[in-house]
Amino acid sequence: MPHDHMSPSGHPFRADDDVPLSYWQAMEIAVRELLIEKGVTTAAEIASQIDAMDARSPANGAQVVARIWTDPAFRAAMLQDASAATAAMGFDIGPMKLIAVENTDTLHNVVVCTLCSCYPRNLLGLPPDWYKSRAYRSRTVREPRAVLAEFGVTLPDNTEVRVHDSTADMRYIVIPTRPAGTDGWSRDDLARLVTRDSMIGTGRAKSPEGLAGTDRPT
């Protein structure tokens, strides 16, 4: 049975907490308690860090993309220095060094990390499980079109696919192409078209028809 109580840090215990205590869970508790006792960190600092990470989500990136679509000066700033431009927009991206790569009618970008699972987590939040999988890490650099097809993205031969392997210090966000039929849309409405996968490159932004009827601007 799931606990229904909250931890002192204010986070609900989840059903996962009710499975038998594993060796590695015990190690997490031990390391955390010892670090707190030695004054390296505090329970409040850990809770605050969890809250900061939980607050990051693809919705942040969607706002960035929607602004790129509507603000040429901001687009130029993002292509010049995406870290500075997102920070100036008010997002707490910490020390992350970000590069924005822009899709066009003839270029489709997709991001992978073959050596581990580097991801623009300080803007988009933690990566999806598939991004960390052996299959995605192995295949994307060799057969990106086959991988993209599994995500429902098929591209004509005259569209160049460009794979970005996040091997070192930089992180990447893909700027998807703006869907047709969105002239005059507000930035908030546009942001609702921008999916997580479209900012990794394994998806496209939704078309206006892709929004539920009640979500669609008139």
Partner: peptide, 9 residues
Amino acid sequence: LWEKRVDAL
């Protein structure tokens, strides 16, 4: 929660 704590640590 325990995974988020590992990440935070």
